[in-house]
Simulated assay, not measured.
Amino acid sequence: MRTQIALILFILISCSTHSLRYFYTATTGIPTFPEFVTVGLVDGEPISYYDSNIRREVPRQEWMAEEADYWEEQTQASISSEQNFKANIGILKSRFNQTGGVHIVQFMYGCEWDDETGNREGFEQYAYDGEDLLSFDRNDMRWITPSPQGALTKSKWDSDRGLNEYTKNYLTQECIDWLKKYVGYGRSSLERKVPPEVSVFQKGSSPVTCHATGFFPSGIVMSWQKNGEDLHEDVELGETLPNDDRTFQKTSRLGVKPEGWKKNTYTCIVQHSGLEEDVKRVFTDNSGPPLGIIIGCVVAVLLLGAVIGGIVWKKKKDGGYGKTNTSDTDSENSGNTAQKA
Rank of each mutant, 00 (worst) to 15 (best):
R246Q: 12
T284A: 13
N88K: 14
E131W: 10
L291S: 15
Q173A: 10
L179I: 01
K193A: 05
P195V: 04
K257N: 14
S223R: 11
L20N: 04
E112A: 06
S273D: 02
S199H: 14
Q83S: 13
T3I: 12
G260P: 00
I176K: 11
G40A: 10
N88F: 04
Q106A: 13
S78D: 07
P242F: 00
E259G: 13
I104P: 07
Y166V: 01
C210G: 15
T3E: 15
R95V: 15
G162S: 12
I220H: 10
E259W: 12
D158A: 10
T167W: 01
K154P: 00
F23S: 14
N88S: 09
R55L: 14
D43A: 07
K203P: 01
D51K: 02
E236K: 10
T117E: 03
Y24T: 15
N243D: 02
Q225M: 13
D244M: 07
Y49M: 05
F136W: 05
D330W: 02
N164T: 09
R120K: 14
L254I: 04
Y128A: 09
R138V: 06
T17R: 15
A306E: 04
E174C: 06
G296S: 12
L20M: 04
S135Q: 07
R120D: 03
N169M: 11
E116T: 04
Y109I: 06
T38R: 14
C111G: 04
V102Q: 03
K316Q: 07
E276L: 09
K203F: 11
S189R: 08
D115A: 06
S48P: 00
L241S: 07
E239G: 08
D43G: 01
F136K: 02
L190C: 01
D328F: 07
E62C: 04
N243C: 15
V105L: 15
S273M: 05
A338I: 03
V312F: 13
L92E: 08
H103F: 09
D115L: 08
E131C: 10
Y185R: 10
M108R: 03
N286P: 09
T172V: 06
V256Q: 14
D132S: 11
T172G: 08
N88W: 11
S147M: 14
G100C: 11
V194N: 05
A26K: 04
D129V: 14
G214A: 02
L302F: 06
G204L: 05
L304H: 11
T337L: 14
S327V: 05
Q76E: 14
I79K: 10
L9V: 00
T153W: 12
N336W: 01
N97F: 12
D244V: 06
R142C: 03
K317Y: 07
